[in-house]
Design a protein around this nucleic acid. Structure first.
Lengths: 367, 367
DNA sequence: AATTATTGCGTGTTCGGGCACAAATTTAAA
DNA sequence: TTTAAATTTGTGCCCGAACACGCAATAATT
């Protein structure tokens, strides 16, 4: 003989709903999951009571019995081509680890970032596997659109990170706020150079078509000076450099430095600040300060020896982690997730670098 | 008739262990929880197999049946006396929210930070309630020691945050790295003042005996210049100010500025940078830069109008969150937790401030 | 030798929800 | 009507671990 306490304190169970609605738990279950057929009036009655009692399913119990698996796909550049991607990759893996207990699996699709075809190939492959959710860094605009369409049609949610593509509303965008980071860089540049001088914005091409990023960074940088009525005091130049030919790279820099009066600072909008640092070192120039992006090993070297003053970092590991996190929140826990999520802009110097490195498993998550 | 698949894929259950060890699940359970009586040899056999099979308990299942509740106590200053504590408080509450599903409850004990007796009173009260774990910011050294002893005797783990007290090994320390933050401040100070000048380290007393903090910050600041062979170039002064008397405060500053040649920067080691900012504003002085701590509203005001150049921030919300997190990891999930956990030192300017504010529920957690 | 402890170990129930299947009821067709 | 089919609803087991209970075997006590 079983005795049913009708309301075990404050926690509402399916059984409580069933009791109150005078149906069986099976029926309540069917209502909750929209499965099976339930008479319209019964359905409404149950629905009403669920709302009344403020029922919240017990996740432990739910996960326990059910052997449902969630398969996510992550599409991003191979870190062997660009060390930056080591961090997102490890964030993704950390998230997979954290959600393993909820039967979440993440399949990684990495591509050569310099090869559009490879990108498309990997995206196609991924799509064929019909994952439950997708996290991607869509560095190719045009090529990505058809996939967005397909995924939307298949009702597969996707989260973008690092690179934003408007339209085709993704579940969420995790990312860089490039404009703001330009502003920040300018603030640092200005702070370190109280007196009038010239500054150079250097875009060092990696052949990746993420031009939007770079443009935004430049705008931010320039607008800082404009907004603070400093544009007559500082002369801001910009240049696009390519490293395809070493000698050209050096020659361009030689010319720039030769022809620019009182150049005091170079702001590198890509993660190649180390290239400039190396050049300055070779030329024994030490009166030009450097601000760059991303905590990749060659940059760290020059940050530590003082050639680079600051690196701006937007928690790349966190971006990977968060992407998976958002998918899990949405699909596993049926929660709403923010459409856009900017991670904090970190100012990294030699003095606080330690805290941002991936020693063991440092990671910032925003909740 | 039940059929037991001996190894359901990769997941190891108690049943699998029992099967392999040729005992019942009850015995395995007893071994795992050190409860009840198990023959020595059987125990070893089971233990060995547990290790071999790399058994990890299923948390869902564990939590489901068990109605065990975890009661944590959090002891920290009342945010009405010092706005700084708003952030840790909200981090603690966020963590409570996150762990609610695991039956974790957090009781807050807040005290007047200027009143030792209140501190002791709240600590006593807390102790009487025999919580399962304690998170505290032990701002009074001497008065805390007896409690440590008591808690150790009662086998109640405690986590320190924001203020460190060595000895009596706590479960974990979450914190500020004061020395390092001094170094960082110096780097910023130096970067913004390439030319020789004087700098002032100001300790503004809040009557709280966290002198250790301040000393470490000062050491960090001074050592930066020493390590970089700059101590002949920059003159570093220090002063202890008290705001108890408004007129004295102003007079002291007047005198300092009068008597210090070429003072270009003030580093405020407490969260009262706004006091200096206000003073400088009143005196119409704008050639002295300010670096301070903590994102409290009055500081933010002066950060935004440019009077304060940088605020250093060590994720106070994250500290609260992490404290509870660590207790939960240790007590609920039986994991090992790092003895010491420094949160990243953030350099906050007007330009990246947004990301560090608590809009809705921004929070960084390290995992 | 009979009784009681003590120790060692297995069984069975519980937690809340998912889900397969069975039962009951209604509707449609013959 | 009778019977079959379709729809609606109920029952019971499962998930994995915790834990109470109880049985058996051995040891200790009278």
């Amino acid at each position: 003989m079983k005795k049913e306490r009708p309301q075990k304190n404050t926690i509402v169970r399916i059984k409580d709903i069933a009791l109150k609605a005078e149906v069986s738990t099976g029926t309540v279950d069917r209502v909750i999951h929209n499965r099976g057929r339930v008479a319209e009036d019964v359905k409404n009655r149950v629905l009403k009571i669920i709302k009344e009692l403020n029922y919240e399913p017990n996740l432990m119990a739910r996960m326990l019995g059910s052997k449902k698996e969630y398969h996510f796909a992550a599409l991003f550049p191979d870190h062997n081509y660009d060390a930056f991607w080591t961090a997102p990759k490890s964030g993704i893996e950390k998230a997979e680890q954290d959600f393993k207990q909820y039967n979440v699996f993440v399949e990684q699709y990495v591509f050569n970032p310099q090869d559009v075809d490879d990108y498309v190939k990997k995206a196609t492959e991924l799509t064929r596997r019909k994952p439950d959710g997708i996290l991607l860094s869509p560095i190719y605009y045009k090529e990505t659109l058809p996939f967005f369409e397909k995924w939307k049609a298949d009702n597969i949610p996707f989260v973008l990170f690092n690179t934003q593509i408007a339209d085709f509303d993704p579940l969420s965008y995790i990312g860089q706020d490039s404009y703001q980071s330009g502003l920040l860089a300018a603030k640092l540049a200005h702070y370190g150079n109280p007196d009038a001088c010239s500054m150079l914005i250097a875009h060092i091409d990696e052949k990746i078509s993420n031009a939007q990023h770079l443009v935004k960074k430049e705008q931010g940088f320039r607008n800082y000076f404009a907004q603070n009525n400093l544009d007559h005091k500082y002369k801001i130049l910009n240049v696009e450099l390519t490293r395809s030919s070493q000698s050209n790279f050096i020659k361009s820099l030689d010319a720039l430095i030769e022809n620019t009066f009182d150049l005091k600072l170079i702001f590198v909008t890509t993660s190649q600040a180390y290239d400039i640092a190396k050049y300055l070192e070779q030329r024994h120039i030490n009166h030009i300060k450097l601000i760059g992006y991303d905590l990749i090993p060659p940059n760290l070297h020059y940050l530590n020896n003082g050639a680079i003053s600051f690196l701006i970092n937007q928690n790349p590991k966190g971006q990977g982690y968060w992407g998976i996190y958002q998918l899990a929140e949405y699909l596993v826990f049926k929660k709403e997730v923010p459409i856009i999520k900017y991670l904090p802009l970190d100012v990294v110097t030699k003095e606080n670098l330690n805290y941002f490195l991936d020693e063991k498993d440092q990671l910032f998550i925003e909740i």
